[in-house]
Design a protein around this nucleic acid. Structure first.
Lengths: 335, 335
DNA sequence: CGATGATTGTTAAACGATTGCACACCATGG
DNA sequence: CCATGGTGTGCAATCGTTTAACAATCATCG
């Protein structure tokens, strides 16, 4: 069995209270000799305080939770995680992560959160898995909550917006400006099933509309969810009777697959088919040609993470805040 | 404040004991009417049991912990996570993840584990971050522990081995059999700093040695840690006076970058330079040519995850077990 | 020399749930 | 009519830690 404070106390010849005073780091005067005896006893037994008991009593866990969609290794997620871990360290918090890659996992994650696993939460999951209603039941616990999301968000939490749509319009207008008229959109699956266009898809349709380009339903295809299906989808598109002369992909990774597919089909990028992605990941710099893309101007997430810790440190509830992270179109060789 | 069982009890006009009996799912007879009153009261207040209090009393958390190295999106990690989550659901456990991408994070993770955040742990982190000693201090808590790792592991935990080295030997022998003599090794950084060759690097050196191929220190380079540095490293290699005629990359992602670099340098794969990777990820199927690789034969991780749940369900301590997951060389177009 | 205060340690009451045990109630049967 | 047993509910101890309040000791000082 794990050693308890009681056992440490016996070994050191003091009361459990003294053990707690020494080890919990509160500023309570304890004689140097006593302190040392406790420390020795604790390390001899390999004692670590039981966090469940501690959180129960203190009514805080000193943990924050990162609710993260798909482990899929988007570098931007990695950076977010890194910044969160670092700032948490600095404030004496630990970080635990809950993975949410389906609606079932979202419900499980919410249960864990409502059980009180952490004092605050940073949510980086799209609305397709974690609904606004579920989010609401997290916020209802009055736990400090920061959400990175473009869809609507329940009241009471901080929110981080990325004005993707505008930057996507700009990208597609750029393609139109080059005289391209058969511009395909390579979409993530969920975006196609939302009823009306939003986000990246909305940017695409808006740009076409604004310049009087005939929309063609057949040019809007799913496949941006992973590299392999993106490759396949583009290969299929190029075999149609009226193939596209440009591809706007909802993710950079899909865009890179598109470049491969185009070249494997014996066509040139950008002469025959231009490609633009979304995300501005580093990998876009080593493709040939380099990938045009839209993405956030700022690369670190300290501003986002700070929202959370501001709330955790505040004495009384803070008003809800919103951060807008500017996006821009980055033209490179593929368009 | 979050509602407690006491408040639910008052609202339902029963004792907290009854509330607990109704909501904790233990098989305790409660009259249907009472049960319903409790359930109504709980849902009206939005009550969720405080997990800290529950685990303190029950002496189990009903949680398992996944300790995961780099969020870097290796698909094989994704599959592991998925299988763990699924089996956990089936057994009534939740999953929390601790991210370990540096030694500092490893120490933080161990602290959290020793604090008792979970009943069992599945460790998928290389020894370069999480040392055997740190692992030992997890095992010392007698918490069921499963470790995926080829280096030595402290006694008392289950271990999952991947005989990479043998499969890597086979791959490099295949290259030698084609008459290639200047075979480069594109390594992950940590592997180069271990003193003596292990794992993939050992496979490489062994194969060269076994066939009397002169080793050339200049052909062993770092760069397999991410796609961009792999591209850069290979580009540099190809510009040397005596460039390689084959590249064995420690990861598939690096190998794919190598293919790009080779083609961008105006050379052909595999005629001028052959490429072999490690991991057997799906993306290798959409490169041109398709990527030769070595990787695990089995793709799911249910066998690994079962080790953990066997331990969690066992009445008394189980003897340590070991799983060996066979690896094989998969020849495709790039070699 | 007694009051005062500083210093250091202990006592005991929480925190919020779970659960062994006792108890109250009621129907049944001898 | 009382013993018996089955049902349903409550009492109170418990998990391991924190922390307010108090007690003991000793030096200091008027």
């Amino acid at each position: 069995m794990r050693p308890t404070a009681k056992q440490v106390a016996e070994l050191a010849g003091v009361s459990v209270a003294t053990v707690s005073y020494v080890l919990s780091g509160r500023d309570r005067r304890v004689a140097a000799g006593t302190r040392q005896r406790v420390i020795d006893a604790a390390s001899r037994l390999g004692y670590t305080p039981n966090q469940a008991a501690r959180s129960l009593r203190r009514r805080r866990t000193q943990r924050v939770c990162l609710v993260q969609g798909s482990f899929g290794g988007v570098p931007t997620d990695e950076r977010l995680a890194r910044d969160l871990h670092e700032m948490a360290d600095g404030h004496g918090y630990s970080v635990v992560t809950l993975a949410v890659y389906s609606e079932a996992r979202a419900m499980a994650a919410v249960d864990v959160l409502r059980g009180g696993i952490a004092d605050g939460v940073l949510v980086n999951v799209g609305g397709e898995h974690l609904t606004e209603e579920l989010l609401g039941s997290i916020v209802a616990t009055r736990m400090p909550t920061v959400v990175i999301r473009n869809e609507s968000v329940p009241p009471g939490c901080d929110v981080v917006r990325a004005p993707e749509t505008g930057a996507c319009v700009e990208a597609v207008e750029h393609l139109i400006g080059q005289g391209r008229r058969r511009i395909a959109f390579l979409s993530e699956r969920y975006e196609l099933y939302l009823g009306r266009p939003t986000g990246r898809l909305l940017g695409y349709t808006t740009a076409l509309d604004r310049h009087g380009v005939d929309p063609d339903r057949r040019l809007i295809v799913a496949g941006a969810d992973d590299r392999v299906s993106a490759y396949q989808a583009v290969t299929d598109l190029l075999r149609t009777p009226e193939p596209p002369d440009a591809i706007f992909a909802a993710t950079d990774r899909a865009a890179i697959s598109a470049i491969w597919a185009i070249r494997d089909a014996g066509l040139r990028v950008p002469e025959d088919v231009a490609v633009v992605g979304v995300g501005n990941i580093d990998e876009g710099l080593i493709t040939n040609p380099q990938l045009s893309t839209v993405g956030p101007i700022r690369h670190d997430y300290t501003d986002v993470v700070r929202l959370l810790f501001d709330r955790l440190q505040a004495e009384e509830p803070l008003p809800a805040r919103e951060i807008v992270r500017a996006w821009a179109f980055v033209r490179r060789g593929s368009s």
